[in-house]
Every structure is written in structure tokens, then in C-alpha cells.
Amino acid sequence: MDLRRLRYLVTVAEEGHITRAAERLGIQQPPLTRQIRALEEELGVRLFDRLPRGVRVTEAGRVVVEAAQAILERTERLPDLAARAARGEQGRLAVGYTSSGAFHPFVAQQIRAFRAASPGVQLGLAEDGTPELVRGLEEERIDAAFVRSGGTYGAGLLVEPVLEEPMVAATPSDHPIAALRDVALRALADETFVFYRRPTGPGLHDAIVAACLRAGFSPTVGQEAPRMSSTLGLVAAGLGVSIVPASMQRMNVAGVAFIPFSGDPGLTAPLLLVTRRRGRSAIAERFRQQVRAAAPPR
């Protein structure tokens, strides 16, 4: 469909007169008449009734004119839409996060801030394990991901530290340790641990095991859970104790107590932002820059 003909159609309909429409369009009346007739032949309907003084839009013509106006309005907006997309203000952004990352207030703050600053961007969110998020980035199903694991990533991914937070002990609320103000990591040597599966979060898993070894013991793992959030459910059921990022306290799981560690056991949980090194959209780059600017000084 020729957009020029659609403009001619709308102008004739607005003027109700071929000659006046031709003057408004800056063309001669005969070519305009031919273009309108060609459009009628293309569509197979009569768009105007010819009157002694001007023209009148037919019922079919009225429907076509309304559709043409909508099409022309959208085409007029194309340059602005293209410019907004190039600036990262229009389009779609898919952000992933691990279950533990979702509970850190920084993640929610960044998502809210980006939504407020970019109302034209459709924001999609996805919670998953680190391996699944990495695969989503590599397959370009998501654009950015907040993860906890500082393990090995492919050369095509950019991994940037955002912040680190302390980790705390999580025990059943009726456990003797739950009454303490703080606890030494060594005091957990005889406890049965509930861990999240290593493939899900290898970085935190290995960091906890290494800290326990430095404290003089190897943790006895009684249960493993697919997500850190489900780990707390197993702790509440009395199946063992665990070590989790401090922000997990925001879950307010009934039956679980959180106790800070005394001294410095070297247990911190990183929050990392992962994006693709190449092929980042302007929107993904704007989100990355926002997160970097908001990250606390290291």
C-alpha cells in the first residue's frame, strides 16, 4: 500500500473537495483524481460519492479513512520511536535474578528506578538458578542478570561486582544458638547443614565450605535444596542449620532465626551483574550504567 495515496485519501476526505485537496497537497487536480481512482481499484470499493460540488465519503470510505489516519499517525511517529529506541528509552528489557538476589533491596530498587526512568520500556523479570540465567544470557533470552556466584563465565559475558553483604547463620528458632547475639563459625562444627545444591550456586557453596575449613571443620551436609529460599524451609522444619546472605532475613520465614557471626570468618555474599559483552542493546547498556552508578563504593 502506497502511503502517499493514503495521505491523498485523508486530505480529500477532510476537504470534501478534490480541487481544494489538490491545492492543499501542492499538486494538480487530475493526478490527484487518478490516484484516488487507483486506490479505489486497488481496494475494490468506492471511497467517495461524486457530488455536483465536491465529494462525500462512502460508508466503506469512512472505514478506510479512519484506518489510513491511524497508519499515517504511526508512520509519523517512527522517527521519534527510532530515536528513543537508539537512546534505550523504547523497547524491551529482560532482567533475571537468583532467588537469593531477589531479596536484596538493591535489586528491587534498581528495577523500580529503571521502570520510573524508562516508562516506554517493557520490563520482563525472571527468577532462576545461576546456570539457567547464564544460559539465558548466552541465548539472548534475557539481557542482564543479578547472580551470586563468582564462578567461571564464558568469554562472551561481562561480569561486574555490584556489592558484597555479610552472611549469617540460619537455625531453627528453637535451636540453642538462636538465643545468642552472635556465633562463631567454629561453633557450628557439630551441626548438620542444609545447603543449596552446588550447581545452582557454586560460588557461595564453595565459599561457605572454604570458610568452614579455615575454621577447622568440614561441614556435614544432611539436606540439599534447589533454591536458597527453599533451604530456609528445610531449616524451619528442623533438618539442620544453614549459612545465607544477610538480606535473606527479609523473607521472615516462621521458625527460622538469623544470627550474625562473631569475628571475621571471611563469609560474604557477592551480588554481581552479568550482561553480554557484545550485542548489548541500548536499553541493556542504560540499565548496566544505572546499576554501576548506584552500586555502593567498594
Rank of each mutant, 00 (worst) to 15 (best):
T11L: 01
E15D: 06
T19A: 12
A21S: 05
G26P: 03
L32F: 08
T33A: 15
I36Q: 06
R37A: 15
L39W: 03
E41T: 10
E42C: 01
L43H: 01
G44D: 08
R46Q: 15
R50G: 08
P52W: 13
R53K: 15
G54R: 13
V55E: 15
V57P: 14
T58W: 04
E59N: 04
A60Y: 03
V63I: 12
V64A: 03
V65Q: 05
E66Q: 09
A68T: 06
L72I: 03
E73S: 07
R74M: 14
L78P: 03
A82L: 13
A83D: 13
R84C: 05
A86K: 02
L93K: 08
G96C: 00
G96H: 01
S99M: 08
S100W: 11
S100P: 05
S100R: 04
A102Y: 09
F103A: 09
F103N: 11
A108R: 10
R112T: 10
A117M: 11
G120A: 04
G124T: 11
L125S: 04
A126D: 10
A126R: 07
E127L: 02
E127N: 05
G129V: 11
E132F: 15
E132Y: 14
L133S: 02
L137T: 02
E138R: 05
S149M: 09
S149V: 06
G151K: 04
T152W: 15
T152M: 15
A155D: 13
G156V: 01
P161H: 00
V162W: 13
V168C: 01
D174M: 07
P176C: 08
P176F: 10
A178E: 06
A178S: 07
A179S: 12
L180F: 11
D182F: 00
V183S: 02
A187P: 00
D190A: 09
T192H: 04
T192E: 08
V194C: 01
F195N: 03
F195T: 05
R197W: 15
P199K: 04
H205S: 05
A211Y: 12
L213G: 04
F217H: 02
E224L: 03
P226Q: 06
G233A: 05
L234G: 01
A236S: 10
L239I: 02
S242V: 03
V244K: 00
V244E: 01
G255Q: 02
V256K: 07
F261L: 09
S262R: 09
G266R: 09
L267T: 11
L271N: 07
L273T: 00
R278Q: 13
G279M: 01
S281V: 08
I283W: 01
A284T: 10
R286K: 10
F287K: 00
Q290N: 04
V291A: 02
P297A: 13
